[in-house]
Simulated scan of single mutants.
Amino acid sequence: MNRDFIGYLLGLIIFIIAIPYVMFLASGSPNPAVLSLIQMSILIIMAIIGIGLSIWSIVYMKNVGGGNPFDAFNHEVAPRTNSLMTDGPYGICRNPMLLGVFIYHVGVLIALMSIGAVIVFIIEVLIMNVQVRKEEQRLKKDFGKDYEDYVKKSNRFLPKIN
């Protein structure tokens, strides 16, 4: 099986299916029929925006960066990028894929309205922050001053407001 495919499949399973499901379970498994039209609409809009941003970032990374996003705690799951990307979705922030995932997951939080789901989200953000910091060390080693300059001009997860 192609290593790129494995990376994409793992990302889909973990971020699009598993984490929202764990959030759902942590919320006490509410009946989806009780979600208000507003909650459901917000979830759908945020899912489209968030997943769309993540897919744009993945496609951009593959085409421009020549690699795959799935690099888990210094273990290469699929081929790493060989070019530093600072424009396209990477002009928004340094981790637009995760920004997209977080947007989607905030939509899930709004739909679930549960402290349990919030706790799962906070744990996810903390774990991903550790992962990203390790990834940033590798990027600094791979791309040197160019990466350091990019870090000065961009935020880790959120768009930089000038």
Rank of each mutant, 00 (worst) to 15 (best):
I45T: 05
W56E: 10
S27C: 02
I38S: 12
I44S: 10
L25K: 04
S57R: 03
V64W: 01
L37C: 08
K62E: 14
S54M: 15
Q39P: 04
I44E: 08
L35Q: 02
I58M: 14
G52N: 14
A47K: 07
G50T: 10
A47S: 15
S41K: 09
M46W: 08
S54R: 12
F24R: 03
M40L: 09
L53W: 01
V64T: 10
F24W: 15
I55R: 10
A33C: 02
Q39K: 10
I48G: 13
V34L: 06
M23W: 01
V64P: 06
I58W: 14
L35N: 01
S27N: 08
I44K: 07
S57W: 06
S41A: 15
M46G: 07
P30V: 01
A47V: 03
G50I: 10
L43F: 13
I45H: 00
M61Q: 14
I49E: 15
M23Q: 11
N31M: 00
M23V: 02
S29N: 05
K62S: 13
I48L: 15
L53N: 07
L35C: 05
L37N: 05
V64E: 11
G28M: 04
A47H: 07
I51P: 13
Y60S: 14
K62V: 06
S41D: 09
I45M: 09
I44W: 02
W56R: 12
I49V: 15
I45N: 03
M23I: 04
M61I: 10
M46V: 07
